[in-house]
Design a binder for these strands. Structure first.
Length: 327
DNA sequence: AAATCCCACAACCGCATCCAA
DNA sequence: ATTGGATGCGGTTGTGGGATT
């Protein structure tokens, strides 16, 4: 027998929505908002449960829905995000404006899984099917680097009419706190440290706001879309999705110093805290830090892709504990 | 033309989590 | 600390329409 659903208990309607029901729900929410979903059906004059109304609104009636078929770029992004997030459909949907988790889940189950298999890729692990069959060990380093390459390629090829055309190059860096920093170098270094800011630099100022100068670096929040300090001039031109090429940003060694629990930025470098000379602590509690980082990854899966690649690159370096500016 | 199959999409179900009482 | 309602999420099923036999 099992549990009775709320609709059964209350003898409410189930199944497909009629245009009249849609109109009632749409009118009600347009006029009054949804508020408490459980009270919506009564207020809107619907013989439905609140859960059903919520779902109908989210998946069909919401005015900001994109509808229509998924573009190739959207499909690529879903595949990339799925490789990081797995079946966390709502989080994947959060990266695709106008798309719902249900829509993406359906697309995945009906189409993308099949496409991946046809390409010889296992849709669960995102590894080559042959590799799984042979039980081969992964080369994390190689895969991570390949992943960034793939993203770079897909973003550079994609959406040629919009953001990518305006930007000749955008580079991004996410900092990794517990990563050891390679010391002593006279030239520029790829430092891997810190965890919150993403740094982007622009190598062309074509179509960029005046505040973003050629070859300058700028700090953004974890989404990569909102600058620290909220400057509307920035947000107005930024892409609505991940339309930039992730790669490492070089920071001149004289601009930063690092100790075991903090890093220090000098020489008028732009920082996310709006200070030119600032210092921040790195949390000592590893468990909390890992948890926080995982939450961060969930909010911005691109960070994980980047960090996977960075870890791969970092593993190729010699470990070092001190940073010297002398060499 | 009818039956069957396949597919995409919509909706339901059950569980987890949150939060206020 | 417990409880129960509200909400969110992911897995699964149902439905309708087009393609195929």
């Amino acid at each position: 027998m099992g549990r009775h659903s709320c609709c059964y208990k209350q003898k409410l309607r189930k199944g497909l929505w009629s245009p009249e029901e849609d109109e009632k729900l749409l009118n009600h929410i347009t006029n009054y908002g949804h508020g408490c979903w459980s009270s919506v059906p009564k207020q809107a004059g619907l013989q439905r449960c609140g859960k059903s109304c919520r779902l109908r609104w989210i998946n069909y009636l919401r005015p900001d829905l994109k509808r229509g078929t998924f573009s190739q770029e959207e499909e690529n992004l879903i595949i990339e995000l799925h490789s990081v997030l797995g079946n966390r459909w709502s989080q994947i949907a959060a990266q695709l404006p106008g798309r719902t988790d249900n829509e993406i889940k359906n697309l995945w189950n009906s189409c993308l899984k099949k496409k991946l298999r046809q390409k010889g890729i296992d849709p669960v692990t995102h590894k080559p099917l042959s590799e799984i069959e042979n039980g081969e060990e992964d080369d994390e380093k190689t895969r991570s680097q390949e992943k960034v390459t793939e993203i770079s390629e897909s973003t550079s090829k994609s959406d040629a009419g919009s953001y990518e055309q305006k930007q000749s190059s955008v580079v991004v860096k996410a900092y990794e706190p517990e990563m050891e920093v390679e010391g002593s170098c006279s030239n520029s270094n790829n430092y891997l440290m810190g965890n919150y800011p993403i740094q982007m630099s622009f190598t062309s100022n074509d179509n960029l706001p005046n505040s973003i100068s050629n070859s300058s670096t700028h700090w953004f929040d974890q989404t990569g879309l909102k600058p620290f300090g909220m400057n509307s001039e920035f947000t107005s031109f930024l892409p609505s999705s991940f339309c930039y090429k992730p790669s490492l940003v070089d920071i001149p060694s004289e601009d930063v110093s690092v100790s075991s629990d903090s890093f220090h930025m000098k020489n008028n470098m732009l920082s996310p805290w709006g200070l030119t000379d600032c210092e921040t602590s790195i949390k000592e509690n590893q468990t909390e830090e890992e948890e926080a980082k995982w939450n961060e990854y969930l909010q911005n899966p691109m960070l994980m892709l980047q960090n996977q690649a960075f870890e791969g690159l970092c593993n190729q370096r010699k470990p070092a504990t001190n940073l010297s500016h002398d060499d």
